[in-house]
Design a protein around this nucleic acid. Structure first.
Length: 207
DNA sequence: TGTCCGATTGGT
DNA sequence: CCAATCGGACAG
């Protein structure tokens, strides 16, 4: 995929990433899934972002780097989350990929997840990292490279994209209720159907 | 070094 | 609702 989409702000890039294929080539084989859910983390001003206040540490370093690279972090001592770094270098923004619709290498995903229900393979940020074998080793990888990369797949019209508040960021202050989660309308592969959500509205109204 | 806690998941 | 389980952030 062309890098220009990654140069946009996280808020602009998140909905555009829906419908793209996330692919991971490993010695075990190729696994791929279509992105159906993503959240924007908007940088220093965003209370929910790891880069809030400009926090720059070994963990968040990738977010400060050039766009189109992987920001992977571990959580709860047992899961990983995968983000696409967006915005120009120096602007620590990222898009959390929250769910995929399996699209290739499904047997490999089933083996890694230890289950076969396609609805449960990648319906959550931790689940998709396990299914795709994304972990510490993929931290910082260039997503325009040959190992972990995105590909054009299909497009969704604004009418097919819904928004809701982000998941599990109640700790965040003023940005807790921002409608910065984007997902494909009626997709059974979304991590969880939010209580409240609306059809996508204009970018301006999201701010 | 010590303490605290989470952008989750799976089971009650 | 709740526990699992540990790397990372930060205070001292």
């Amino acid at each position: 995929m062309n890098r220009d989409i990654f140069e946009k702000s996280a808020l602009e890039a998140a909905p555009l990433l829906l419908g793209k294929l996330l692919c991971h080539r490993t010695p075990e084989g190729l696994a791929a899934g279509m992105i159906v859910e993503a959240e924007a983390y908007c940088g220093p001003e965003d209370d929910a972002a790891h880069s809030f206040g400009g926090r720059r540490t070994a963990r968040t370093e990738a977010m400060f780097g050039p766009p189109g690279h992987a920001y992977v972090f571990s959580i709860y001592g047992m899961h990983h989350c995968f983000n696409v770094v967006t915005a120009p270098e120096g602007a620590p923004q990222a898009v959390l990929i929250r769910a995929l619709e399996p699209a290739g290498g499904t047997p490999l995903m089933e083996k890694r997840r230890g289950l076969s229900d396609p609805l449960l393979l990648c319906s959550g940020p931790g689940k998709l990292c396990q299914a795709m074998a994304i972990g510490r080793a993929q931290y910082g990888l260039d997503l325009c490279g040959k190992e972990l990369f995105l590909e054009e797949f299909r497009d969704f019209s604004p009418a097919e994209i819904c928004v809701s508040p982000r998941v599990n960021v109640d700790y965040a202050g003023t940005h807790r209720d921002r409608l910065w989660r984007f997902f494909v309308k009626d997709s059974p592969y979304v991590s969880k159907v939010p209580r409240r959500y609306t059809s996508r509205v204009t970018l301006a109204s999201l701010r």
